[in-house]
Design a protein around this nucleic acid. Structure first.
Length: 576
DNA sequence: TACTGGTGCGCG
DNA sequence: AAAGCGCGCACCAGTA
């Protein structure tokens, strides 16, 4: 593995029986290539990482990195071809995306079980990959060159490079968080379930408190066999009892006065907990004291992560008590206060909004500016502006923000207008919204024809406004996701650079080697949880804070906006 | 039996 | 029954 100059990139790909590595210089010219026996691969990669710290180029991070982590190997940087392809093929910052778009094989989603198959990645027999992007080295290099070409000719190359690096770093973090898991106290979870729902019945059936709530509902309805889990049946039963609601949603029920309401709301609350995060969930998703969800970077059109299985991004507040650090360890829980409005202030260079946010609760700052009277009003107005509210209290308050913060409001209003006209909008770093569907466009052009019906015109208008609200929010939500990726990536590096922990903490119960150091354990749009030995908790908390400031500078340079964090260090992930 | 669409609720 | 964005999941009902 000698090379004249250190490789800046190393592309990896599989053949039927071996792995091919391709060393590329900083200009992406090939220096050399080598075929590696699967048994030697892990140590080869570990050596190359230590020697050159290259950026690893591979087709799909979970399939490569999952196996490496299982072998105790961590890498600092990668370029995830599949994720970067998805960004570049749509980005309006790319002048000529034709070549990238033609490579349709890179549009394929990886097979669902690819991640679980990862530990077997280098076993001889697994050569077939039924779906997903190509896994061989030649395809990887070719796609990498196409992507580089698309980026390098763009006038916005530096933004795109940052976005691709952040997206790829996120892919590494997602794999690592799955490998490390979120420390989960099953006994504490069980206690919460027993307290809330009652003892778990041995032979199946409903727990006592849930059954009792159901009985009270049926008694109040005067209908001992009423079905509570079927929306149509429940609705009919309510009507028979004289509760004339149009839906069975909590919101509408709460406005009614009838003896059935209180027990019904109670029943809904309990049955939700039992169904979504009850004993079945605990058995399915928690093992060895860890909750291991599948994070899906880039899973949302805006660039936010999605999750698959376990409902990782919907952890109910009620269960946060069950998130519990290992003995001698701590959790550093940090979330950003009003991330999206701060991002909006920065990307629109709205110094007034940034000033309202600086060093304090942003909503309080808006109140102080005199635009609205109360914190609640400020919150409703700002959310309404970013989501496109037109009616109700929110719709009434938005015009006042428009006067106070014309630049910020102008940015989201413009994004809405572009979307209504069928155009494409982009985030700060260059992730673009999808083009309108053919059905959408057809409806719009149909509505302009002379013989279009009133109904057709109304539908086209409604769809246009729907799309306007989507693009309005896309620019803010998507840029906030970019900030969060930069935060994660920077934090990951800082945590990895902390000094080694003392020996008594160096070997916790189980898990990958990096999890013996302070490490990221959870991420939720604007929140991170770091699991750390107690002796490093202060350093980890400091790293979280510094990473946030660093992310702000990386995206917005010296623009004077701050990203305030609420940071708590404790043994559980409980909030307030 | 496997699917799809509707409903409702959890999260940001 | 939300208004006003983005998700995932469970459950039911209707259909293939």
């Amino acid at each position: 593995m000698d090379a004249a100059e250190p490789p800046a990139w190393i592309a990896v790909g599989r053949t039927a029986r071996t792995v091919v590595v391709v060393l590329l210089d900083a200009g992406a010219a090939e220096q050399s290539r080598e075929e590696i026996e699967p048994a030697r691969l892990a140590s080869w990669i570990a050596d190359a990482e230590a020697r050159w710290a290259p950026r690893w180029v591979w087709h799909d991070t979970p399939q490569w990195y999952g196996a490496l982590l299982a072998d105790g190997i961590r890498v600092a940087r990668c370029h995830d071809l599949r994720l970067c392809h998805a960004i570049l093929r749509e980005s309006a910052l790319v002048d000529d995306a034709a070549a990238v778009r033609r490579a349709v094989e890179w549009d394929a989603a990886p097979s669902v079980d690819a991640e679980d198959a990862a530990p077997a990645l280098f076993e001889l027999e697994q050569a077939q990959q039924p779906t997903g992007p190509p896994a061989d080295a030649d395809a990887a290099v070719a796609e990498f060159l196409r992507q580089r070409a698309a980026v390098e000719v763009s006038p916005e190359a530096s933004r795109l490079r940052l976005l691709l690096a952040a997206e790829s770093a996120g892919a590494l973090v997602a794999c690592e968080m799955r490998a490390a898991g979120l420390p989960w106290d099953a006994a504490a979870h069980d206690r919460i379930l027993v307290e809330t729902l009652g003892e778990r019945p041995r032979g199946g059936g409903q727990p006592a408190k849930l059954a009792a709530a159901a009985d009270r509902v049926r008694a109040a309805l005067g209908d001992p066999t009423a079905s509570l889990d079927s929306q149509p049946k429940l609705l009919r039963a309510l009507h028979r009892a004289g509760v004339l609601v149009e839906s069975t949603s909590r919101w509408e029920l709460a406005e009614q006065r009838h003896p059935v309401i209180e027990p019904l709301l109670e029943y809904k609350k309990l049955s939700r907990l039992a169904a979504a995060n009850g004993w079945t969930w605990l058995a399915d998703w928690v093992a060895d004291g860890r909750f291991r969800p599948v994070f899906v970077p880039g899973g949302v059109v805006t660039g936010r992560w999605a999750s698959s299985g376990g409902g990782a991004l919907q952890l109910p507040r009620q269960l946060r008590e069950a998130v519990r650090a290992d003995p001698g360890w701590r959790l550093v829980v940090a979330d950003v206060a009003q991330l999206e409005p701060r991002v909006l202030a920065a990307m629109s260079s709205d110094t007034a909004l940034a000033a309202a946010a600086r060093g304090r609760d942003l909503y309080a700052g808006i109140v102080d500016s005199g635009a609205v009277a109360t914190r609640q009003e400020a919150k409703i107005a700002l959310l309404g502006a970013m989501y496109g509210a037109t009616t109700g209290e929110s719709g009434r308050l938005v015009p006042r923000l428009r006067r106070a913060y014309p630049r910020a409001m102008g940015l989201v209003d413009d994004a809405a207008r572009v979307g209504e006209d069928g155009g494409v909008v982009s985030t700060w770093l260059g992730r673009s919204s999808p083009a309108p569907s053919p059905e959408w466009s057809a409806a719009q052009s149909r509505a302009t024809e002379a013989e279009a019906s009133g109904a057709e015109e109304a539908r086209a208008r409604r769809w246009a406004r729907d799309r306007g609200r989507f693009t309005r929010n896309f620019v803010v939500q998507g840029t906030a996701a970019e900030w969060a990726l930069a935060w994660l990536a920077d934090l990951r590096g800082r945590l990895a650079a902390l000094p080694p922990v003392s020996p008594e903490h160096a070997a916790p119960r189980s898990g990958p080697a990096f999890a013996r150091q302070p490490h990221l354990a959870f991420f939720l749009h604007d929140e991170v949880i770091v699991h750390t030995p107690a002796e490093h908790a202060d350093a980890a908390a400091e790293a979280v804070t510094e990473a946030a400031a660093s992310a702000g500078r990386l995206l917005f340079g010296s623009f004077p906006v701050d990203f305030r964090l609420d940071v708590r260090t404790s043994e559980t992930a409980l909030k307030d």
